[in-house]
């Protein structure tokens, strides 16, 4: 679906934003692009969506070189959720979505109210102006805008930002459903939980370079600590012990009355990010 080879981009003489990125995104894959602010995530997404021109290297989307791909046909096949919910504040959710969807062929469109319902948008706000919506509601309308045209390739920038935990769970479920239908998702985020739970593969980007690229599981496994911490009760006292995993093969190797919990010392994706890039995500 997406093929990027030696991608470079510069905002000026001394502002090199991307230093030769290489990656591919397969059909129906959820690909996470992780990095802190200013790392080059948005620049890459803008190049892929045709907003920024003048890049170096080779970029192809839908099997076509990006320079030639930015036709109306290309934009009909992509859906983009921006980092901020860009909507007409004086128009209602319905009017916003009717307006934005009016540029797509009618046969390609989903039912607006159905999409909003799926996103658990409060129905009594459907015809009220966006200016009266909470941040979470605006994010739902923005997501509906990205989904309403049934895109084959979905670019999502911080999709769960501004959502409460249940909203975030809902969005993740919807993204999974989209992938289930064969939609490819390019997810730009610095939310590790989103990346860990959703992505088939993630790329860590820092200072315009990809520091690591693999499945979240493999990235964590490569650096896994082979130990577990066991909390237990013995003679009425709560105690804790950390042991090597192979020691568990023959059972719990110490006296105990009751096991309270066993925690593996598996690193988080954020730990991995820091390890690869030398900096945090926020």
């Amino acid at each position: 679906m997406i093929e990027v080879k030696d991608l470079t981009f510069s905002y000026g003489k001394d502002k090199q934003a991307l230093h030769g990125l290489n990656f591919t995104v397969g059909d129906g894959e959820i690909f996470g692009f992780l990095g802190p602010n200013g790392s080059g995530k948005s620049t890459t997404q803008k190049i892929l969506t045709g907003i920024l021109k003048g890049h170096g290297g080779k970029v192809s989307v839908f099997g076509q070189d990006i320079a030639a791909a930015h036709t109306q046909d290309f934009f009909q096949k992509i859906g983009v959720l921006f980092e901020f919910p860009y909507l007409y504040a004086n128009l209602s959710a319905i009017d916003n979505l009717r307006y934005f969807s009016s540029f797509y062929p009618a046969g390609q469109l989903r039912d607006i109210e159905e999409v909003l319902e799926k996103l658990e948008f409060k129905s009594d706000f459907l015809r009220k102006p966006v200016s009266s919506y909470s941040k979470g509601m605006r994010q739902r309308v923005s997501m509906a805008r990205a989904l309403v045209s049934n895109p084959k390739l979905l670019f999502l920038d911080e999709p769960t930002s501004g959502l409460d935990p249940s909203g975030a769970v809902l969005f993740r479920r919807i993204i999974e459903e989209e992938r289930g239908k064969g939609t490819t998702v390019f997810l730009t985020t610095h939310n590790m939980m989103d990346a860990d739970l959703l992505c088939d593969r993630v790329a860590f980007i820092s200072n315009g370079n990809i520091a690591a690229l693999d499945t979240p599981q493999k990235l964590k496994e490569k650096n896994r600590d082979q130990r577990v911490t066991i909390s237990y009760l013995y003679q009425g006292k709560r105690e804790e012990k950390t042991i090597e995993i192979p020691e568990l093969e023959a059972g719990i190797p110490f006296l105990h009355d009751e096991i309270i919990s066993i925690h593996s010392e598996e690193p988080t994706l954020e730990d991995m990010f820091i390890q690869y890039t030398g900096r945090g995500l926020s």
Partner: peptide, 16 residues
């Protein structure tokens, strides 16, 4: 429109 950011959305819409 600039403040609302909606001009940016038009960049990815299938229109001239």
């Amino acid at each position: 429109e600039k403040q609302m950011g909606v001009i940016r959305v038009h960049a990815v819409l299938p229109l001239k």
